[in-house]
Amino acid sequence: MVKFDFTKRDIAMMAAFLALMMVAEAIWILGSVFAPFGIGIYYGAVLIIAAIVIGKRYTILTLGIAKTIIMLLIPDTYGGSLAAICYLIGAIVLESALYLSEPYAENLKTDLLGILGYGIIYWGVYAAILTMVYGMALPQWAIIIGFVVYPGSFLLGGFLGYKLGNKVKNVIESV
């Protein structure tokens, strides 16, 4: 049985990270060509920073569940409410990878592996919803490009998040 053991401080910090994830929607003003890069880097960074700073198991899973609930209520720009599932399934993958590292999210390799998995699953589920549920015709080459762009940008964001996360954690613990 999954046991969520968060203090009020952890919950308040998770709320701040969740808000930071929500404002990422503003990146879409960059346009549909550049936005996926920006979204991937930003999301990847925020998720890994959240995992490092809070440093407790199921942090990512909780953020994934909360983000899914919000996106079900406030639909995504393209893909509607159903696209919210991407965040939940992606979070399960990342959480599974981080679960293996001890202390939580402190290992660069598992962080990068997890965020790469998140990127792959995120795009895979999103493309599946667009093609199988909404009936969008997407050529194979476009799906393959997505499988390069999303995991690549998430990976870059994850690396950036690892570098920033430890810095931010030290600052937060000192104040």
């Binding site: 919950i11 969740l18 929500m22």
Partner: peptide
């Protein structure tokens, strides 16, 4: 829903304008 999850969602909604 557990009360802490509701608190998390409420606080995150409050945090959005603050973050901007």
């Amino acid at each position: 829903f557990p009360e802490w999850m509701i608190l998390l969602l409420t606080m995150s909604i409050r945090f959005i304008p603050l973050t901007f």
